[in-house]
Design a protein around this nucleic acid. Structure first.
Lengths: 153, 153
DNA sequence: CAGAATCCGCATGGATACTG
DNA sequence: CAGTATCCATGCGGATTCTG
């Protein structure tokens, strides 16, 4: 296996065990990296991952077969789809159902946990979509300034 | 430079130019990868990036100097901090101010655009924090099932 | 202090071939 | 169809060294 995810069950001392909503307005951000060996950063990486994001977004709408996902995501290699789905399954975000029929049929669907990611992911994507022009402009401005400074040297 | 970001100003035909909130409940997700050459996926990757997320989260609270950020994020190398900040600056999310004093002083702060990411990022982190136990459990369950099936073979 | 530049290991991820 | 297994390119990102 290629993933270096240590199987150590260390779920480390959690600061905030409850529903998570109780954290004050200025919970310690440095926790992220302090806890680095811990789950948080790692989970964040998985969830914010390129393919995971896309897979979840698609599964958000309905149950899908392997090949359907493959076609929908399109840019993805079959290898990465497999890996991504396995990770999501392991994290309890996606449920994998195998139908023991002759042409194998495997279906994927979001679990309840996975479904709770809905609003968050949606929010992230919405932000990106609605600000892409601003970002594009910022970039060309930046690039323009750069090449100008270069020629001024 | 190592980044392969083509400077092509192609901001591609945007489906939804407006505020972005107008998209229906089932806007086309496949847009993400169809537009792959376009900004969306790319921006998403940047914003959802490990270090970007941390840097933004810290800058969310107050203006910081380079070395302060370096210490706060801690896991980060000086190289990656530089690269990350440059990208964020280019994208118009972070403003960089250089004070031409003898020991150089450079300060970073979120722009208005960067500040709008606040709720979104917060939401993502909150989700991760509040569900880490569930995920940890799902993982150990999964791993347990795995090693069992292996021994059953 | 705040970076730029260089070198380089190693994990990410694509392409391909094989299986149940 | 739904994978697994292998090989391999590239690029991410750490460590180090050198400037203004």
């Amino acid at each position: 296996m290629e993933e270096g995810t240590s199987k150590s069950p260390s779920h480390c001392a959690d600061t905030d065990t409850g529903t998570g909503t109780g954290a004050g307005p200025d919970y310690d951000i440095s926790q992220w990296d302090v806890r680095e060996g811990c789950e948080v950063r790692q989970i964040l990486d998985r969830v914010a991952d390129k393919w995971s994001l896309l897979a979840i977004a698609h599964l958000e709408r309905r149950t899908l077969r392997f090949s359907e996902l493959r076609r929908l995501i399109e840019g993805i290699s079959q290898r990465m789809l497999t890996v991504t789905l396995r990770q999501l399954e392991r994290d309890g975000l996606v449920r994998r159902t195998v139908y023991p029929v002759v042409p194998p049929r495997v279906e994927y669907e979001l679990t309840e946990l996975g479904a709770t990611l809905h609003t968050t992911i949606r929010s992230l994507v919405d932000w990106t979509e609605s600000h892409q022009q601003e970002i594009a402009k910022a970039r060309s401005d930046y690039d323009a300034r750069q090449s100008q400074e270069v020629s001024a040297s």
